[in-house]
């Protein structure tokens, strides 16, 4: 089981934070990652509009053949995305804890501009403490 990476996407679909942990997926340039974050934002919006029964949230988990993306949408529209192996079971829990760290270390920081890239040492440390090297 491995955690490959973490993305934070703001409510406009821009990638504001990105970090890779374990190896296993393609090495992407930051530009490619920005594009993919935008794609994910669009897919998420579409999946919430399609539903065979009643209203639906956007995609919570998107699966490929070797990895999955777990998406956690906060009430303010920020998306936390965790790229993990398919067998990872605690992805939701990890995202919840990262959201806590984000609230404490980023949102409560008076020098942080909302919706802008996250550059915070405190947040970095907390993320490393939660995920470590990406092996669980």
């Amino acid at each position: 089981m491995a955690i490959f990476g973490l993305w934070i996407i703001n409510k406009a679909g821009g990638l504001v934070y990105q970090k890779s942990f374990a190896e296993g997926l393609a090495q992407l340039t930051s530009n490619e990652q920005l594009v993919l974050a935008g794609t994910l934002h669009g897919i998420h919006a579409i999946t919430s509009r399609l539903s065979p029964n009643g209203s639906s949230s956007g995609a919570n988990v998107i699966e490929g053949e070797t990895f999955k993306m777990t998406i956690f949408l906060t009430v303010t529209g920020t998306k936390f995305v965790l790229l993990t192996s398919l067998t990872e079971t605690i992805a939701e829990h990890i995202l919840q804890r990262i959201y806590e760290a984000y609230s404490d270390a980023v949102m409560k920081n008076p020098f942080h501009t909302p919706e802008m890239p996250v550059r915070s040492e405190g947040f970095e440390t907390r993320v490393n403490a939660i995920i470590g090297s990406g092996q669980t």
Partner: peptide, 22 residues
């Protein structure tokens, strides 16, 4: 599909997604 392919760097298919309703 393109997103999954790009992220994994392999010729890999998108297989499923899940929302709260379906």
């Amino acid at each position: 599909k393109n997103m999954v392919k790009k992220i994994s760097g392999r010729d890999e298919q998108f297989t499923s997604y899940r929302t709260s309703a379906y």
